[in-house]
Design a protein around this nucleic acid. Sequence first.
DNA 1: CATGAGCACTTCCCGTGGTGGAGTGCGAAC
DNA 2: GTTCGCACTCCACCACGGGAAGTGCTCATG
Lengths: 348, 348
Amino acid sequence: MVEAELGERSRQVLEAVIVDYTLTAEPVGSRAVSRKYHPDLSPATIRNAMADLEELGYLSQPHPSAGRVPTDKAYRFYVDRMKAQPLSRTEATRLNRQVGGARSELDELMEHASLQLSSLSRYTGVVLAPPLSHTRLERVDLLPVGGERALAVVVTETGWVTSRTITLGEPLRQLELREIARLITEGFGGLTFQEIQGRLDDPGPPPEERLGRLALTLAEKVFALLRDRNLYIGGAINILDQPEFADLDTMRMLLKAFEEKRRLIELFSSRAEAEGVRVVIGSENPYEEMHETSVVTAVYKYGNHILGSLGVVGPRRMRYAKVVALVDYTAKLVSRRLDRLARAEPSA
Amino acid sequence: MVEAELGERSRQVLEAVIVDYTLTAEPVGSRAVSRKYHPDLSPATIRNAMADLEELGYLSQPHPSAGRVPTDKAYRFYVDRMKAQPLSRTEATRLNRQVGGARSELDELMEHASLQLSSLSRYTGVVLAPPLSHTRLERVDLLPVGGERALAVVVTETGWVTSRTITLGEPLRQLELREIARLITEGFGGLTFQEIQGRLDDPGPPPEERLGRLALTLAEKVFALLRDRNLYIGGAINILDQPEFADLDTMRMLLKAFEEKRRLIELFSSRAEAEGVRVVIGSENPYEEMHETSVVTAVYKYGNHILGSLGVVGPRRMRYAKVVALVDYTAKLVSRRLDRLARAEPSA
DNA sequence: CATGAGCACTTCCCGTGGTGGAGTGCGAAC
DNA sequence: GTTCGCACTCCACCACGGGAAGTGCTCATG
């Protein structure tokens, strides 16, 4: 359908405009296209093609006598038919070393990944940490740590460990704590955190014994702490080097978007079921503050479960071919890394 | 000495210039001072005083025929003799509710404090989490969490709990882990983390038995994870509303400074021994990128120990009287809050 | 001798108008 | 269908100039 809409000539011109604009960030005129990309075609021919492209909504003019600028539709067309441009050897080794390195723990892995995404793309890297909603609880431990507080340790079936201190409502002995932890583990073990949340929201009749009731309130506390996902943003200022964000208001808007992590988290978690790399261009983004940006994301997995997503936020005139390859590679690297982290079973 | 340097007249004029400049961010002329602050004095008289003040280094002119702008020396003079301007009732109650509230855990407390510092000052709020260097270890626990990993739980004498997962070099049984934790606790309990680091750096002859050697390497891993302090930055973009940061390069420099947390941490931890509120004005700051900003900090404590510091980063023409009061109050609030959090002993 | 008034001077700010360049659209020619 | 040439438009840049703000200096005055 799109193929029918555009002739070969128009397609080539469109591509040239996109490539040039990606490089220069300046509106590109017919003359420049002729000189730099198609010396065999005269500027006048290009002009005709460009006029067609504008009518079809692929190009637009900032003002009547300026060059043309690609629209979101143009980028979409380009992205859908381009080939990813594989990472260079040095880039790949650097990623492998920094992200695939063996020593780091989970949070360091996420942080390094976001930093590398940023510095290799020269835009901003984002990593959304695994949500717990779809993973299953293995067990809960409660350790007394003095006073009316305890350390709650939550272990999932996939082997992730989260711990937080919680404040008990009343002083409890170690034995009581252990019993409560056992009750919680028995009551909720094997369920996904989503299911657990459902049960907690609609608890039915309260248990008879005191410890049972305590277990419920403490479980509430423990799982409440796990609800928020972490979002790692690396190199937020990197993106500010792009000329389209040189304007003060645009800049402020973008930074505000970065600071409001909650909405970014939504953005990165929504539609994160599909495999492969996803590209959201400009106004395709539901988040209005990000209409000037494009977002490239991919999911990372543990075994067959999608755990989270990561990606790059950049200007609409992003070097898509490169970034898509980078994001894809990084996602796979993180998945492999997670596998190794979790599967490391006793070798004996 | 300073008193001798400045006559009463000059002092009043200087104060007027500072006040007006903090409000308007525009160079202030003799006419404006006369009209707004000292109608009894003619502009000419003010001019004379201003000329004196310029010679003494308290004022400067952006260009020969503009008004005057206070120098760092002027702010210093002002800050040293001003009185803090107490918080309004609504501000105080808001702080109490948001920061003093009873439910939050340690990290939430820090985060809320930084956000409130920011939104009440309209600048940027910063909270440096407690360092461990001077607190003493109470005990270490190691929990097996599947595979070759364990959850290390570190409890300090002050009752703080930190936990991190670590990767064991080899598979270990639960009993072995427990024994190793016991060895670490016995070997290092009661020592400050600084002392522990010293021992680890210079370990002497390695122990005979296998578990002893393992305890050493694992202790190394555990304590390495505790070395970095967390820095909470709230409302970094708030400060960008200030006109002096409207320039693109200044803005970028500032954001870069915020992103490089390591140096900020240094800044906030250095000279953080003294009680009370400390004000660092413009070029007094050792960190060159922050010569355009002023920093107001205060330490918060647990009992008699200084745990960390918090404060506000703003433009040099900060509303010092207000911010000093805000920072002071917040620091005390956090201290009180920590006390309650940790001391909550079993009431029976 | 400190204060205040007047005045000439400097500097910046901002709006104006002119100019050159880049790019388009269109009609005519190949 | 392609190319050429030309007239037109719009922006970006610069130079110019008036106006405002502010100073320093001088001199009169209590």
